[in-house]
Design a protein around this nucleic acid. Sequence first.
DNA 1: ACTTTGGGCAACCGAATGGTTGCGTGTGAG
DNA 2: CTCACACGCAACCATTCGGTTGCCCAAAGT
Lengths: 106, 106
Amino acid sequence: MREARDSAAIFAALGDETRLRLVARLSGAGALSITSLTTGTRMTRQAITKHLHMMQSAGLVRGTRHGRACLWQLDQRRIREARQYLDAISKQWDDALGRLRKFVEE
Amino acid sequence: MREARDSAAIFAALGDETRLRLVARLSGAGALSITSLTTGTRMTRQAITKHLHMMQSAGLVRGTRHGRACLWQLDQRRIREARQYLDAISKQWDDALGRLRKFVEE
DNA sequence: ACTTTGGGCAACCGAATGGTTGCGTGTGAG
DNA sequence: CTCACACGCAACCATTCGGTTGCCCAAAGT
């Protein structure tokens, strides 16, 4: 199984309501600037910036300067990694249930 | 899409190395007591207890008293919910890419 | 009956989190 | 050129988090 530390970082990055909303928004819009991401959040631009940097250090998102704006977009690979981790957990769980059933039957 | 708050709680519960290890262990073993979960962690039993309670309040895990031991096991539904959330994000992302491509082509 | 063993509760602690404000800076629009 | 706009940086704050210690309780083992 994948290293627990890295996966934990991804999940931690997703484990905040504000950040999850940002991810949802980015997943539908492609790339957005910080100020446009700030509108509708009743939070400061700095708060959003912090969240974005946090997600970037987790590899969930990346931002590129474009003129005087800074456009941020998802990096979908990490999302896939997280999905795979959950898949592995589910599979292991199912296997364990299967073994248990087999054990009970014998 | 599902309420962001609940999903964030699930991801937050998964977003810690210790807890993720507990989940991995529980997914393979079925049901374990607190002390048996503590062995091999170089942490106090109380720390593990706190993590378990935290995960329980997120719906990830549930514990039932059994004699003087307390057995904890995964609740796989929340893991599925988390997977579905990530699936939705991925799908939305793919759709957005598709629209972008279409837009560029026209 | 006495002692181990598995666990709960509460207080305490340092460090990280989530958020704000204030100020400085480069870029682009008018 | 000038000014507004989008952003970065740093300090600061309250709260939460991850973890420990100490004490106590009840269930089992001997």
